[in-house]
Design a protein around this nucleic acid. Structure first.
Lengths: 157, 157
DNA sequence: ATAAGTTAGATGACACGTCAACCTTCAGGT
DNA sequence: ACCTGAAGGTTGACGTGTCATCTAACTTAT
């Protein structure tokens, strides 16, 4: 293989910009979330996902797949959240290996209180800064990239 | 404060898409980088940044600021990279508190070898999937967000 | 010159994520 | 029924990041 195709100047701007935006947004959301709700982004992901499921419960494996975590990571994190009273584990009815993660009352209260300031934060630092066109383009970009990474790799013929 | 302004449907698509893309890209780049070069993204950031400075060296504090890390994090990480022979610490000439982080020969070799496959990975999973317009829009989005987060906050009048 | 405040960096304790090993239960074939 | 393999989940060790704290060195004002 010869000289690689380095990034062109516009590509480089996009790539570096993306990484810088990513890092700064992450810092900001982490800070805001901790200050406003005492939750981490990880906590928020778990709680908000559970709050959107019917019965406020989901099997550990499914939950992990949905939020793109390893089972191990989720298991550890659920243990910690369980100790804080935000979620609970329940036996799975159909499969005795499985286990459901359930939102507790405290967990539901936590996410209900955390959501509004978090959305405000997302708007202030990100969404409200963009035009409608930019919003749509961002969604399209994400759609493309996610699809490409999610589809099973085809062998190059 | 009344009911928050929840995200509209297009905004929600962009926001969730962004987060999903972010997570998947991160996983992919981490995997590729480890497989191709035995480096972490953190290693890569440090090495590539140093390789772009003249003299292949930069003061720890400046380096931390440039890559948006805490001094503590960088100090820890440099200690580990030092043990692996990728970088070295040098006394700062002007300020006896300070210290320079310097690329070693092994570190330079490592980044020179790691860069081409990494760029390939960035292209395959991200940049090459996008149109020129999307590239430019992404850069513009990042520019806007980064500027907003970087400028000192103005008090709302 | 000296005291007070600031900055560069290191460090140790702790929280989190990953990895590999493990146990249990389920599913398919024989 | 039995064996084999795969899937759901847990666990412990280890690597990494954060936070608070610390030391040393620089700056400024008196």
């Amino acid at each position: 293989m010869s000289e690689p195709r380095w990034l062109t100047e516009p590509e480089d701007r996009a790539w570096r910009g993306y990484r810088r935006m990513r890092a700064l947004l992450d810092l900001q959301f982490t800070r805001d979330l901790a200050r406003d709700s005492g939750l981490s982004e990880a906590d928020y992901d778990v709680l908000s996902t559970l709050s959107e499921t019917e019965g406020h419960r989901q099997q550990l494996n499914d939950l992990a797949a949905q939020i793109l975590w390893s089972k191990s990571r989720l298991s550890h994190h659920i243990t910690r959240m369980e100790n804080r009273g935000l979620v609970a584990r329940e036996d799975a009815p159909a499969d005795r290996r499985g286990c459901f993660v359930v939102l507790t009352d405290a967990g539901l209260r936590a996410i209900v209180e955390a959501a509004p300031p978090h959305v405000e934060s997302v708007r202030r630092h990100f969404i409200d800064l963009l035009t409608d066109d930019q919003i749509d383009t961002l969604a399209a970009i994400a759609q493309t990239v996610v699809t490409n990474l999610t589809e099973p790799d085809r062998p190059t013929p």
